[in-house]
Write a protein that binds this DNA or RNA. Structure first.
Length: 385
DNA sequence: TCTGGGGTCCTAGGACCC
DNA sequence: TCTGGGGTCCTAGGACCC
């Protein structure tokens, strides 16, 4: 493979969760629709055969918007926004609960469709992938059209594709002509197409870094590209400064990774109301056990065992703490996980109400065949001591 | 009406070993 | 009596992504 002439596509499904739900409820097409909130608010079938949909104004409680249709985005609603805030902006938007099983199904469908056109695929989320097109003979525009057509035929859904010499640029590029677009750029287009954009368009510059850059007078990628290395290093770490300058010039050598092992498996839950560590202890304990069981089920279903068990607590003031504990052997046994997680819990001062509780298992190893029973047996051992 | 859930990666200090 | 230095593991927190 020639690193100099790579050709990488980034494919991003358009408003994925919402679009999947519109396939099921086509009568909502063209309306502002958001996915989010908790699992009530499922559309109810009425006696006249029509469906009743909940609107954002009907919602009360915790949660965020995971996806908004373009019609809802026009009101200023976007993913990550609290549902209650979104309700102020778009009270008449239709609210649908997330159906992850369905989303995963459509995710598999679109990825399989792409794989029939190009095999070198990196999964980066339920609704997006990178594709290495370097070894294919066809032109980029032709490939992009073929892939979009394959996705549409397999799912009825549209996507946007960016093609560029690396993942960094491809990712930025797929967002240039959304929805249902194709953008193709080369290194010679960076000054015209990339530099005018906000630094936030760079995958890896989040709210914190963008804010700090803005305080230094840097908001566009062009301004970042013109910054002196010494100036950046006075405000950021050396490695981050070097990376900032590289990405501002469109440099990125990361390969498309067609396979990766999971590093951790976790489950967490935000309570409807903050819970008091002593007064609500029975409820907390039940939730805690349920999380351990779910993590163990996930591990067993995916055929992994882990050696480090961790907990995550979020207090009423949103302060978040984690603790973890490494066992002498790998386990995927719910009782062993709960015991280790309880050890972690003992090391936290519980003085405030709890908003969130989570359990995580990391340092994973695949449990193939012969080792399985041994790992399971050893994993349970600490319980009996 | 603040702020979900599932992840990855990085940093940094201390323990421990050679 | 002044304390090297590299490597790895463990732990905690934080930024970031979808």
């Amino acid at each position: 493979m020639n690193a100099i002439s790579r050709r990488i596509a980034h494919l991003d499904m358009d408003a994925f969760y919402a679009s999947v739900e519109l396939l099921r409820y086509p009568e909502l097409t063209g309306l502002p629709v958001v996915i989010g909130g908790r699992s009530k608010h499922k559309p109810a079938l009425q006696t006249d055969g029509s469906r009743h949909f909940y609107k954002l104004r009907d919602y009360a409680g915790r949660g965020v918007i995971t996806t908004a249709t373009y019609e809802a985005r026009a009101s200023g609603v976007h993913s990550g926004m609290g549902v209650m805030k979104a309700a102020q902006l778009a009270p008449d938007a239709i609210l649908l609960p997330a159906d992850f099983e369905r989303f995963r199904h459509y995710s598999r469908l679109f990825k399989a469709a792409v794989a029939r056109v190009a095999t070198e695929i990196e999964n980066t989320g339920i609704d997006e992938i990178y594709i290495d097109l370097s070894e294919l003979p066809e032109g980029s525009l032709m490939l992009a059209k073929k892939i979009k057509q394959a996705v549409l035929e397999a799912t009825g859904l549209t996507c946007s594709i960016g093609i560029a010499p690396n993942k960094l640029l491809a990712k930025i590029c797929s967002d240039l002509d959304k929805p249902d677009g194709i953008s193709i750029i080369g290194m010679s287009d960076i000054a015209d197409r990339i530099w005018p954009l906000s630094v936030r368009k760079i995958n890896g510059i989040g709210p914190k870094a963008a804010k700090k850059l803005a305080s230094l007078g840097i908001t566009t990628i062009a301004a970042l590209a013109q910054a002196e290395p010494e100036f950046l290093q006075a405000h950021f770490s050396r490695s981050y400064s070097i990376w900032l300058l590289e990405v501002s010039h469109g440099i990125d050598n990361r390969p498309v990774k067609t396979y990766s092992e999971p590093k951790s498996i976790s489950r967490e839950t935000t309570f409807e109301q903050d819970l008091h560590p002593r007064h609500d202890r029975p409820v907390l304990s039940k939730a805690f056990t349920a999380l351990c069981i779910r993590v163990a089920e996930d591990l067993q279903r995916k055929a992994y065992a882990g050696r480090t068990v961790g907990i995550k607590l979020r207090f009423e003031d949103f302060q978040t703490v984690t603790r973890d504990f490494t066992l002498s052997t790998h386990t995927n046994d719910p009782a062993a996980i709960r015991q280790a997680a309880t050890e972690c819990l003992r090391r936290v001062a519980l003085e405030k109400k709890l908003r969130l509780l989570g359990v995580r298992v990391s340092t994973l190893v695949p449990i193939d065949s012969v080792q399985t029973t041994e790992i399971l047996r050893q994993g349970v051992l600490p319980l009996s001591t």
